[in-house]
Design a protein around this nucleic acid. Structure first.
Length: 576
DNA sequence: GCCGTTTTCGGCCCGACTGTTTTCAGTCG
């Protein structure tokens, strides 16, 4: 039975797609698609919601709420089944081909009886499309190519990898004569955990020359296409990059447009229309006259709203808040005073505690926790009871040596066992300054089982932080199926902070979960889980994920001064 | 189907490109 937000959203999107093929009212189609987006970005678990609660969500009306309830209770939607019976799955799949939308896919189905990708290929090769109205030799060629590329599975790359490439390319772009400003846009600027392709934007008066010079930058593998103001290229490692060059007075509106998300843009443009204005990538216009465009702040300002930070732009209510001047003040990298998860040579880290501490001090941190693995994580070197004593002495000596520069906290990353038990007896756990409890093995259990394990760990009075809560590891390992609302409730009740692990392969809590936890009033720790000094720099990815969840600095325990953090670690009341 | 500092009815974002046409529908982002 479907229960995850992802599955419900997928069903609504499929319903929208099939209705579109069916040729119904296109706004009805749009409504289901928006409702699907709303479910996906819900933050809370849709299967725990009542019909009335669903109906209260913006973009979900009475009819859609009814369909979702039907899906949750019966396992499917009658209308969806009806449409599935009417159109072979292949028709829907055909619309995934680049250049083939619902209208043409249906035309192929009706005129030629084509109902699968294989049948389409046969028809194409037999030249049966050529004489069909609306198709020609060119469509034939394009569809054959689309079929060939379709079989390669969709590739998205990790945020961390994409950002490195983007910054490299921006650096190159800025050296091109005539380029006044340049930025990356799209899902990368919104800091999504994975990125499809890179969108770059430049401001210049000589777009043609810029486009040409861009194609010659060192890390470009192949130019896919180029026009007077834009081009698409493949980098040497196969990432597609789209560059668009605009006039400087259009840069802000273009950046706003290309940053998205699409849903955010639609919402903003609707507001513009209601205000008698027109917003496009070329600027904000009143009666054909540009009234804003050179910066995003100018554009949003002229619309009477605050500028939402890019990670918030997912149409989760940020437009409404920005219009009321009520955007939250999101946590930023500069707010952090320390890192609460890291590893040394005592477990699977690559450097000594001293080396790690010095690197943390160089970042300007006030405190820093070393949290090597406990003894039940047998796949890596871990802490024996003797190790713990040696480590404690080492930390004490280090704190004397580094007094005034940084405070080292003696921590542990405890492993959550099959029954929620941790590595050591209570009196051993009590000896650490900070205990992070994390799942590392047997992550694929049933939701009830996994949730029970995590809840037991949270209830342990010596645990301060729940580390990388779901254990996901992108791109392959999806993470445990947890009742995240129950986890948040327990964390709140027991004074446990939820980690937002900043490693780009984890980003766990992920954005949606952080959004939910923030709504429920939870506390967070944003930690790098660094295994080397360099990995301390990963912090910005954790912060970006927190921002996507609308997390504020006051909710993040490692933005607090050491004294306040110590009260939290002592499980004493923390005044704000 | 959804929604409301113009609206409980009548609207629903904007522009570019492509391939097929001969003025435009479909697709995409």
């Amino acid at each position: 039975m479907p229960r995850t937000n992802f599955e419900v959203a997928a069903a609504l999107h499929e319903l929208a797609d099939l209705l579109q093929i069916n040729g119904g009212d296109r706004f009805r189609t749009l409504a289901y698609r928006r409702a699907g987006d709303a479910v996906r970005g819900l933050g809370r678990d849709v299967s725990t919601m009542t019909g009335a609660e669903l109906n209260a969500v913006h973009g979900i009306g009475k009819a859609t709420a009814g369909k979702v309830m039907e899906l949750l209770q019966s396992g499917t939607i009658a209308l969806l089944e009806e449409l599935r019976a009417k159109y072979p799955a292949g028709v829907l799949e055909m619309t995934r081909l680049s250049g083939l939308g619902p209208k043409k896919a249906l035309a192929l189905h009706d005129a030629l009886g084509v109902g699968t990708l294989e049948e389409l290929e046969v028809a194409l090769k037999a030249g049966r499309l050529r004489d069909l109205k609306g198709f020609g030799a060119k469509s034939e060629e394009n569809l054959l190519r689309a079929l060939a590329t379709h079989s390669r599975e969709e590739r998205r790359i990790l945020l961390g990898d994409a950002l490195v490439v983007a910054e490299e390319m921006l650096e190159g772009l800025r050296t091109i004569p005539g380029v006044e400003r340049a930025s990356y846009a799209g899902s990368l600027r919104r800091m999504r955990d994975t990125i499809g392709d890179l969108d770059l934007l430049a401001a210049a008066f000589n777009p043609r020359e810029v486009v040409e010079a861009f194609g010659g930058l060192p890390n470009i593998g192949r130019v896919l296409g180029a026009g007077p103001t834009k081009c698409s290229v493949l980098t040497r490692n196969g990432l597609q990059v789209d560059l668009r060059v605009v006039a400087p007075e259009e840069f802000g509106s273009a950046l706003q447009y290309f940053t998205g998300s699409k849903a955010h843009n639609v919402k903003v443009r609707e507001h513009a229309v209601r205000s008698g204005l027109k917003l496009s990538e070329y600027g904000l216009f009143r009666a054909g006259e540009r009234i804003a465009g050179s910066t995003e702040e100018e554009v949003y300002g002229a619309l009477g709203m605050q500028t939402p930070p890019a990670p918030m732009r997912e149409d989760r209510g940020e437009v409404e808040l920005a219009l009321r001047g009520a955007l939250p003040s999101l946590v930023s990298v500069g707010d952090l005073r320390g890192d609460l998860q890291s590893h040394s040579v005592y477990s699977d880290g690559r450097r000594t505690i001293r080396e790690m501490a010095l690197a943390a001090a160089a970042k300007g941190y006030e405190y820093f926790a070393i949290t090597d693995h406990g003894r039940n994580l047998s796949i890596v070197r871990n802490l024996s009871l003797e190790d713990i004593e040696r480590q404690r002495a080492e930390v004490k000596a280090l704190n004397e040596e580094l007094a005034g520069r940084i405070v080292v906290l003696h921590g542990l990353e405890a492993n959550i066992g099959m029954e929620g038990e941790l590595d050591y007896a209570d009196e051993v756990l009590a000896g650490f300054d900070v205990v992070v409890a994390s799942l590392h093995h047997q992550l694929r259990g049933e939701r009830e089982v996994m949730t029970r394990r995590v809840l037991r760990a949270i209830e342990n009075p010596h645990v301060h932080v729940l580390g990388h809560p779901t254990g996901r590891m992108m791109p392959r390992r999806p993470g445990s199926d947890l009742d995240m609302e129950a986890v948040c409730r327990a964390a709140l009740a027991h004074g446990v902070a939820l980690e937002i692990n900043a490693n780009p392969r984890r980003l766990d809590l992920k954005d949606d979960h952080a959004f939910l936890a923030r709504q429920m009033g939870c506390l967070f720790a944003i930690s790098t889980d660094a295994h080397s000094p360099r990995e301390l720099d990963l912090m910005r990815f954790g912060v970006a994920t927190a921002q996507r969840g609308w997390v504020e600095a006051k909710d993040v325990v490692n933005t607090w001064p050491l004294e306040k953090l110590r009260r939290f670690l002592a499980k004493s009341p923390v005044s704000s």
